[in-house]
Design a protein around this nucleic acid. Structure first.
Length: 592
RNA sequence: GCCCUCGUAGCUCAGGGGAUAGAGCACCGGUUUCCUAAACCGGGUGUCGCAAGUUCGAAUCUUGCCGAGGGCGCCA
């Protein structure tokens, strides 16, 4: 049990003994570290609830508390704050408990849930760009957080591969290369042989075609109509289109895989809209039959509005008036698949905040129709837009989107340049230098994104992502690397860790107090679905360590007990940093 | 028009109903016979958009207004 929860337990008991609610006993980290380590504000609330002076309540609580092993001193301050200083014994006990535990004192949840996290979500017709960064890194971090908390979680990339963009690409290619066999309605594989095994396009072709055809569709209704027909034909099994679709999908998945690999983002499953295509027609048919869906203006819709809605919530569209399916349909079918095949209790959708209404509609439809049972939790984990300096979604100077691969190369190059300029890692083998640059660049990129709260839009600033000083990913890596270096040198000198002894230096005590907060921070990050909680905490650990590092020179320390204790302490700090950075998807080089 | 999100230091952003609102960057100054100076130490110049309300207590909760971004039936 964490130090904070032990303290809360003591205070809860005291408040209950006074005849008040146990929640008043909650102990939190002190707002005023110069006065105390922890504080309990319950006397203020309890005083108000009981109509008594909060200071009197506080005095009664303090008088009834007897936990000398845990608490060094208690003081009542101001209107009734109870300030708590923990005992050295309790502190080093908590540190020892953490150090001795594989999970660093973080208890797994009592009831593990089966969770599916839907993130990445690339459209198969587009190369990944800077906009995909957020979904990928936030989703990856949440996956690791939820997993570390003890739940079972599956990360699903959910590729957009069964909607209108595919129809658009089909007609664009038809216009460019009409002679290809895929477009010939009379082509029969039984007679003419199988469709070509090699793709008629590569990733660059697709990336080039997509913006062209979307513009054509926007400008010309006749082209848009053709794209819809092609989409309908694909979804209804036209052989040539399916054969072409497979090429498109393979080509895009290959490209996306390399981009996500470069980001160290790993999906457990590479499902997509097309994964559930067999479910689409039966679902629509079933819902029409049961009366849960109806035909409106030729399209099939599900009403999801509620009496109490402040706004008008439009119905969810299941088919277009031409009978083709939309992403609403595949999303609903995907919920069914995740319930039936993956037995999901919770589904997390790490998707741009602009799709809030869509998910509200899909979730309501899923609940209304029973496709998602009542006890299944559907959550849209919304995140803000990455903007350029002008406050608009980020574009290059030329007006194009920034490719994710290029962005990764930019930050890596920046890290490389920094290594050269600062004469760091000068004697290292070239391959190791390159690996360091890669890890440092990625850390800058990911930390730069994850340290923002996910709902806020943030301004993309290349200088910020390429900065390695201050509150950045590389600073965190650097702190950890310095610990690794100490431990390496200590081992060479034949020194080893010993029991943690009571802190004698302020910086040492501050670091200990920070470390023991880990369980609360993980809990908070998971319940808020907010990786920036971890980013912030990891930064605090790193600065606390850096201050300790300045004050306490471990290798030249003369008292062997103190030295051994310090080695154990920084060893734990490294383990915590390593874990926290892993939760953010950031790797620590051995040296840098 | 309606709905959603946001508005905190010069800039970029944290901030959990509690005491004196914090970081990084930028700027000025200091620290290297000592474990990696990508570090550390010192220096703040804030009507927490505005106004009410709830509360013992509000940056935090509610409402209204102002401002920014986004969404609102056959794109994803």
């Amino acid at each position: 049990m964490s130090l904070q929860s032990m303290l809360s337990g003591v205070f809860e008991e005291a408040f209950v003994a006074l005849g008040t609610d146990s929640t008043f006993g909650e102990v939190v980290v002190s707002q005023r570290p110069e006065l105390a380590d922890y504080q309990c504000n319950g006397a203020l609330g309890a005083g108000n609830a009981l109509g008594r002076n909060p200071r009197v309540i506080a005095e009664a609580v303090v008088a009834s508390i007897d936990a000398p092993d845990l608490i060094e001193s208690i003081e009542i301050a101001g209107p009734g704050f109870i300030n708590i200083v923990v005992s050295p014994r309790a502190l080093i006990g908590a540190i020892a408990d953490m150090a001795g535990s594989e999970r660093l004192g973080v208890q797994p949840v009592d009831k593990p849930l089966t969770v599916v996290v839907d993130y990445g979500g690339p459209n198969m017709s587009k190369a990944l760009h800077v906009g995909h960064l957020r979904s990928a890194v936030i989703g990856e971090s949440l996956k690791r957080l939820v997993r570390f908390r003890g739940h079972t979680i599956t990360g699903d990339i959910h590729i957009g591969d069964w909607g209108m963009p595919v129809g658009q690409l089909i007609i664009e290619l038809e216009d460019r290369q009409p002679a290809l066999p895929y477009f010939k309605p009379e082509y029969d594989e039984a007679i003419d042989g199988p469709y070509p095994a090699d793709s008629p396009v590569d990733l660059d072709d697709l990336s080039d075609m997509y913006p062209v055809i979307t513009k054509r569709c926007a400008d010309d209704p006749a082209v848009a109509a053709r794209a819809r027909v092609a989409t309908f034909d694909l979804q209804n099994g036209r052989a040539g289109y399916l054969a072409l679709w497979r090429h498109f999908r393979n080509v895009s998945v290959e490209g996306q895989r390399s981009d996500f690999d470069a980001l160290d983002v790993e999906f457990d499953v590479w499902y997509g809209e097309s994964t559930v295509h067999d479910r689409l027609a039966p679902i629509v048919e079933r819902l029409l039959e049961s009366g849960q869906a109806r035909v409106s203006e030729g399209a099939v819709v599900i009403d999801v509005a509620r009496q109490e809605d402040a706004k008008e919530v439009p119905p969810l569209l299941l088919t277009r008036s031409d009978g083709s399916y939309l992403y609403s349909t595949t999303d609903l079918a995907t919920v069914e698949m995740r319930v039936q095949n993956m037995h999901a209790d919770v589904m997390l959708y790490v998707v741009d905040a602009r799709q809030g209404l869509h998910f509200e509609q899909v979730f309501r439809a899923a609940k209304n129709t029973g496709i998602a049972p009542d006890d299944v939790d559907l959550e849209h984990i919304a995140f803000g837009t990455v903007n350029g300096p002008d406050g608009k979604p980020f574009k290059t100077r030329e007006g194009g989107v920034v490719r994710l691969g290029d962005l990764i190369e930019l930050v890596t190059e920046s890290a490389r340049a920094k290594l050269d300029a600062a004469h760091i890692a000068e004697g290292y083998p070239q391959a190791e230098r390159e690996e360091i640059a890669r890890k440092v660049g990625l850390a800058a990129l990911k930390f730069g994104d994850l340290s923002n709260h996910r709902t806020s839009n943030y301004t993309f600033d290349m200088d910020r992502f390429a900065a390695f000083e201050g509150k950045t990913g590389p600073y965190l890596q650097y702190s950890a690397v310095r610990i690794k270096s100490i431990l390496r040198r200590a081992a060479e000198a034949g020194l080893s860790e010993g029991p943690v002894v009571a802190p004698t230096v302020d910086a040492e005590r501050v670091l200990m107090l920070r470390l023991v907060r880990l369980p609360e921070m993980v809990d908070r990050a998971v319940s808020l679905r907010a990786p920036n909680v971890i980013a912030e905490y990891a930064y605090e650990i790193a600065t606390d360590f850096s201050r300790f590092y300045e004050k306490c020179h471990i290798l030249s320390e003369e008292d062997p007990r103190r030295q051994a204790s310090w080695l154990a302490l920084v060893g734990l700090a490294l383990a915590v940093l390593d874990r926290l950075l892993d939760l953010l998807g950031i790797e620590i080089p051995d040296r840098m």
